[in-house]
């Protein structure tokens, strides 16, 4: 469904008046998802995960530059193709319920999303009604304004808005952040259901435990790069995990050792070497000299000189 190779996202900033400076937020990012799959992208908060979703939709700010190969359904995803697919075949479930316009009725917003996804005007009401009932939203909710909904309801409205157009690729950006466990569980179940109907779901989150509940595969995102691709099952034990960063994340889980030994990783611009090197316990001279390639390892992949 989606195949990303060597994706990089750069921002041009002006420092001291007219001096241009390029900041590289994501580089050498690889990812692939098949239909029917939930692929989790996990990484620390602020690692640029949301930018990934925005890059895939082509809605980054104007000063951003995206490079790399993105194949969607086997064909390159050019900006022109993307603007035709956005909202029709690729949809976003946003991070926060502020993504609903506070001054428009919920039903109007879902209907607009349906219309934009290419559904004909006369079919919109039926489609919207179906989307509402799919997520157990009563008919009356359509006449509500967002401030009249509970947090869980608002999240279901967001999911309904994103899925009303039956997109094949769903990007869920931190769908569980700020939710109580029951509501979070419900949101994740909805993603699993979508995948089970044959859609590809990209679940972007910093919450590993939540992601593992529903994901088939996990891409570990560190300092803007893919460091490991693993099956969700690999997270059952430490020895199945390939990269020291993944193991450190696993160790930090409350259910495991619950130890956080890592300091946050600062991106040291375009310097050579392994991105994880400053925090790694297993490093030697080669780690500082060259960036490791992403290589196949069992059913997953890993980017480490020692794996």
């Amino acid at each position: 469904m989606l195949d990303i190779q060597n994706l990089s996202i750069r921002f041009t900033r002006y420092t001291f008046g007219l001096k241009k400076k390029e900041v590289c937020v994501v580089r050498d990012f690889d990812l692939s998802i098949a239909p029917g799959q939930v692929m989790a992208v996990i990484g620390q908060s602020g690692a640029g995960k949301s930018l990934l979703a925005h890059a895939l939709l082509g809605i980054l700010p104007r000063n951003a530059k995206v490079e790399g190969r993105i194949l969607f359904k086997g064909k390159p995803l050019t900006p022109e193709r993307l603007s035709a697919l956005r909202g029709r075949e690729i949809a976003l479930i946003p991070q926060s319920i502020t993504a609903l316009n506070p001054l428009l009725r919920v039903g109007v917003q879902v209907a607009r999303a349906a219309r934009l996804s290419g559904i004909s005007k006369k079919d919109v009401p039926t489609t919207v009604r179906r989307a509402f009932s799919r997520y157990l939203l009563r008919k009356e909710v359509a006449h509500c304004f967002p401030f009249q909904l509970s947090g869980g309801m608002a999240r279901r409205v967001l999911t309904a808005t994103a899925t009303v157009g039956m997109a094949d690729l769903i990007l869920a950006d931190e769908p569980t952040s700020g939710l109580d466990p029951i509501t979070a569980r419900e949101a994740l179940t909805h993603l699993r259901e979508l995948a089970d109907t044959g859609k590809a779901v990209l679940l972007i989150t910093h919450d590993i435990a939540a992601a593992l509940q529903v994901a088939d595969m996990v891409t570990v995102f560190c300092a803007g790069t893919t460091v490991e691709v693993a099956r969700a099952d690999d997270f059952k034990g430490l020895d199945q995990l390939r990269h020291p960063y993944t193991r450190a994340l696993w160790d930090a889980l409350p259910a495991n050792s619950f130890i956080g030994t890592m300091k946050p990783i600062e991106r040291t611009s375009d310097a050579a070497g392994c991105p994880f090197q400053p925090c790694c316990n297993d490093q030697n001279t080669v780690c500082g000299q060259s960036t490791p390639e992403l290589k196949d390892s069992g059913e997953g992949r890993v980017r480490c000189h020692h794996a």
Partner: peptide, 23 residues
């Protein structure tokens, strides 16, 4: 946030200004 979400749904800038955000 709602404008970003609208763009993700395929809304144009003109659409956001005149349909979504006018109120």
């Amino acid at each position: 946030d709602y404008a970003v979400f609208a763009r993700a749904q395929g809304e144009s800038i003109i659409g956001i200004v005149f349909v979504r955000a006018l109120r």
